[in-house]
Design a protein around this nucleic acid. Sequence first.
DNA 1: TATTGACTTGGACTTCGTCCATCGTAGGAT
DNA 2: ATCCTACGATGGACGAAGTCCAAGTCAATA
Lengths: 124, 124
Amino acid sequence: MTAQRRVVAEVLDGEHVHLTADEVLARATDRLPEISRATVYNTLGELVSLGEVIEVATDGRAKRYDPNAHRPHQHLICSGCGAIRDVHPGGDPLADLPSSERFGFAVAEAEVTYRGLCPGCATV
Amino acid sequence: MTAQRRVVAEVLDGEHVHLTADEVLARATDRLPEISRATVYNTLGELVSLGEVIEVATDGRAKRYDPNAHRPHQHLICSGCGAIRDVHPGGDPLADLPSSERFGFAVAEAEVTYRGLCPGCATV
DNA sequence: TATTGACTTGGACTTCGTCCATCGTAGGAT
DNA sequence: ATCCTACGATGGACGAAGTCCAAGTCAATA
């Protein structure tokens, strides 16, 4: 556990945190100016491998990193401003996929992305 | 409707077709050697705007283009080889999100990605 | 002290996509 | 038939996001 890794882990802390790698780098640089981009990517990759952080690919642009890995949840994204909230739907999305639609796959998880306008964007 | 656009539209035809822009370019080049990358991107963008094709961002790498836009469906992706199948779950995923979890958003759609191992990858 | 190994660094490189100035061409106007 | 015009196509430059690699740093161990 080096100073660099600690800073990356600290930056990724809290609820509804969904930072891009560049944002993580920017905030880490505030605390530890000499940290490098490669180290941020390395550390994020390790955190993802360890299951401490979830990678969220919402739009084909930069991936986002979500530290809320221990409580299963899905994401609600504003189509206007891109804001992301963690949400907890009722029911198991996996149960909705009948075996006739599984094509022999061993289906392990279901990832749901809800999209819509947030209160701020809806009124504009 | 130019020859270039027709070729792009023809390449994107069929069930379970999920090509990247580069793959579309490669197949279009087979039929019309002088077609350019920019034209492929322009045409794909128009098809998406028209609602004829759906953009699928599965992994933060290249986007894929799915011509099966008129029948609502979700995607099942093999964690091993990346193969993609269109699937039709029962039930409406939107219904699983209680209003207490909507945070005032006007939720418009739910996109579900199932992940698991396909029969080929499971046996290896 | 010298060695070792793990971690970090910066920069080059790749991939994916967008932008822009220029060119070609089809259809209408003369 | 010829010229004009406007839209679409072209290709190359550019930019964002991410990966890779050789070299440097540092701490623990022998």
